[in-house]
Every structure is written in structure tokens, then in C-alpha cells.
Amino acid sequence: MPAIEVRNLSKVFRVSEKEPGLGGAFKSLFRRKFRTVPAVSDVSFDIKEGELVGFLGANGAGKTTTLKMLSGLLHPTTGTASVLGFEPWKRKPAFQKQFSLVMGHRTQLWWEIPAQETFRLNQEIYEIPEADYKRNIDELVDLLELQDCLSIPVKKLSLGQRMKAELAAAILHRPKLLLLDEPTIGLDVVMQKKVRQFILEYNRRYKATVLLTSHNMDDVSELCPRILIIERGRLLYDGALRSVVERYAPFKLMRADFSGDVVTADLERIGKVLENRGPSATLEVPRHDVSAKAAELLSRFPVVDLTIEETPVQEVVRRLFIAGGKSGA
């Protein structure tokens, strides 16, 4: 049995048009005007137990709405979903004890007091026996390097520390399924890496199923062999990450700062010049050639600073969208 089974799932929001002010608010209690906005349309997919799947799409494409339906926060308009064998929006405790939803820009931690207090609260909520709690917390502290963060009020933690504590709070009851909505948002590169390592480790150690959304291509490329791409509520692509990247993002972007002006024609020998403004330039370089081209650039030009970037997810999705293909690979 797959961990997640989604069939023809659709969600149409009825957005109420509120009149301003108290009168309007009162009126809206009884009679409301609605306009409908389709958020997710006819989406179907399966996710096997233990799979790590990335869920990509632009803002408002329907990622969060789908996650909310899978976690039982939203009723679908039509279609069915079975998550760990349950219908999520019935919100059965037996189901709720087996999964966790982490929202990168929200927190369940109590702000003014140390994170371990919230852990203790979750112990009661998820009815975790003391011995299991101790074992899980030790393991999480170790994996996430939380030693110094446990007894400090949450508001005094750095963003990265807070995210790690957030993950720990969500994983304390050892869920079989993790739904992660932008887990690395706002974190610096080092912290992003740690969070990713942790997710991977958790997935491997406990055969946990993970579905994550991200704007960050690195999250997806390091974690998820398989991706789903959603655009305007429709599933555009479901398949291996590798093939979509090779097809739609065959290049990486190299940004270089030079100590003086360089001639565009000279740079063209390294790669396609997208932009050359005085002492800094952006080039497009074939993915498989990146290290050789970088070495060449460094040896031939007075490079002060060099960064190599992935094509942004938005861009990949845009290209995929233009290609118009809904094809499994």
C-alpha cells in the first residue's frame, strides 16, 4: 500500500468578499458573497512508503493547498486521498499520531520559554511514553546539534536554531510521514545544508516518507530523486529529478566579479554571456562542464569573486511550462 494515494484531487476556494468595517464583518456572519478560485485541479499521484519526493511550483501554484489537504487541514472539493490508509480530513487521532507537518514560516514553539517545554507538551499530546521520549530526544539533540538551544527561550534562538528545534518538536513522536512546507526558508547556506542532512538521515533511518515543497533547487536536488511539479493547480510533471534538470536546466549560472573590465568577446569562449556590466558578468555554462569552465575562467581572467548557481526553480518550471509537457520520464 502506498503511503499517499491521491486521485483526482481538486480544491476550489470560495473566497468571501468582505465589506470593510464592523458592519461588513457582522453582515459576513450571515450572508456572504463569494467568488471561486481553483487552487488545485484534478491532481493524482502515489507516493511509496519511504520515498523522498520534492514538490515544486511557483507561489500560488497549489503546493501548500495540497499539503494542507494531505494533512487534513482542508477538505477537497472533489477527489479522494488516502494518507497512511486514512482519509486525512476526518482528523482521526490514530492518523494524526503518525504524521507531522512543518511549515517553514510558522512555528508551534512557545515563544517566551525554552523549546524543551514545547517538546514536553508534544509528549503529552502524542502520548509518548517517557522511555521513548528520552530516547527520541537524545537522538534528535544529537542529530540536530541542539545541545545549547534546549534551555534558552525560543525568542532568543537564531533562525536556524529555531528551525532545528521546530523539526525536533515535529519529529518527537517519530512520524511515518513528514510533510515539509519550505523547511529551509530564510536559513543561511550552512544551516540549509544541516537541515537537509537531517531530513535525509531521518528518512533513511526510519524509512519515513517525506514530501517537501521548496523554492530552493538545492533542497530538491540534494534530497529528492523524484519530483512533482505543479503549475496553476495542475500536475505538470511527475518523475525523476535528473531527467527534468537535464532537459530544462542544462546550464548553471556563473557570476564573476573582476578587478577590471573584461571584453565580452573574450568571455564568450567560456560560455554564453548573459550580462556583462563593467567589472561583473553572468555566464551560462553547460552543467557537466562547470568545473572545467570555472578553472578556465579563474586562470584567464582577473577574477575577484566567483559564484555558481543553479537555475532557479521558477525558471525550470517556466521552461517546462512553455514546453507544455505533462510527461512522466
Binding site: S71, G72, P93, L101, Q108, I125, Y126, E127
Partner: peptide, 13 residues
């Protein structure tokens, strides 16, 4: 507004 309600709704309590 802060989404705390979302957490309350997905937790078994």
C-alpha cells in the same frame, strides 16, 4: 492569523 490553529487541528488533541 499566526497559523497556530493549523497546528491545533493536525494534532491529536
Amino acid at each position: 492569523e499566526d497559523g497556530d490553529l493549523d497546528y491545533y487541528l493536525i494534532q491529536p488533541c
